[in-house]
Design a protein around this nucleic acid. Structure first.
Lengths: 138, 138
DNA sequence: CATTGAATTGTAATTATTATTAATTAGTAA
DNA sequence: TTACTAATTAATAATAATTACAATTCAATG
């Protein structure tokens, strides 16, 4: 039995061909695609699929914690099936996005923030903007 | 002379009543409003204003560095005229957004990230998600 | 297997955003 | 001031993003 089917079932999500396609596509990508991109890339295999299904599916996967949704001040959200805590670095010239899995020493800071704000923090979304190596060498 | 006119002029943006209204509205708000909200709140004073003008204006202000644009995985972007570096804390229950101006001790971490990634980092966008005090006490 | 009900899908509608255009307005320099 | 130029505005149209809803499909149960 497929590992992705497994994970969907674990989360009580029905296993449908469309979901499997979208989830495995995301899991095998490190491009942080938008709904539009996912749809275009999968359409070949599922000509009948609607883009509405992609919207619904990524929302379901997000709610189940199987994908991360984030936004870098663009029109549309981006999706990422690599859910272990990591930051994104975005080049303001070529708009490429790089994952950064190195940690941050901010437990202390966050504890202070919880104290000051009264929130209990559960997750975070950190996007860094700058110039990538390629663009700098031009 | 109005401080907001001043700032617009500094950035070579023509000072129009609409711009002044939108910019000062944002500067006096800590609600991180969307275009829709800005439009609705200002309409009373400018009944003839088009929502397209609000879109154009916030984009101009954003390009000039006078407002920050950000998105917390919603349909529409949010805007904030408080441009000094600060994080946002978002309640996943009531969806309220709080500003946090306390700093983070992450210079060291960022330097390492620059080294590892090859990027030169210029700015960042940090959103923390959790439960606010009010929601927790329910 | 066949039945059933809830979850999921695709079509169609809605909402958000951008482009276009003609008219108006701000800023500059005579 | 006045006249000029380029930027900005409002209205409208066009496009893009997202959601609602009726039809269909999945999987649980007998």
């Amino acid at each position: 039995m497929n590992i992705f089917s497994e994970k969907l079932r674990e989360k009580k999500l029905k296993v449908t061909p469309q979901r499997l396609a979208i989830y495995s596509y995301l899991a095998n990508s490190d491009a942080h695609p938008t709904v539009e991109t996912i749809y275009n890339d999968i359409k070949a295999d599922f000509p009948s699929m609607s883009i509405a299904t992609v919207y619904k599916t990524v929302a379901a996967l997000r709610d189940a914690g199987l994908v991360r949704e984030f936004n870098i001040s663009e029109d549309s959200n981006r999706y990422d099936a690599h859910t272990d805590e990591h930051a994104h670095i975005i080049c303001t010239k070529c708009h490429c996005i790089e994952d950064y899995y190195g940690g941050f020493n901010m437990d202390e800071d966050i504890r202070r923030m919880e104290l000051v704000s009264g929130f209990s923090i559960e997750s975070r979304d950190m996007n860094f903007y700058g110039i990538c190596e390629k663009c700098r060498n031009k």
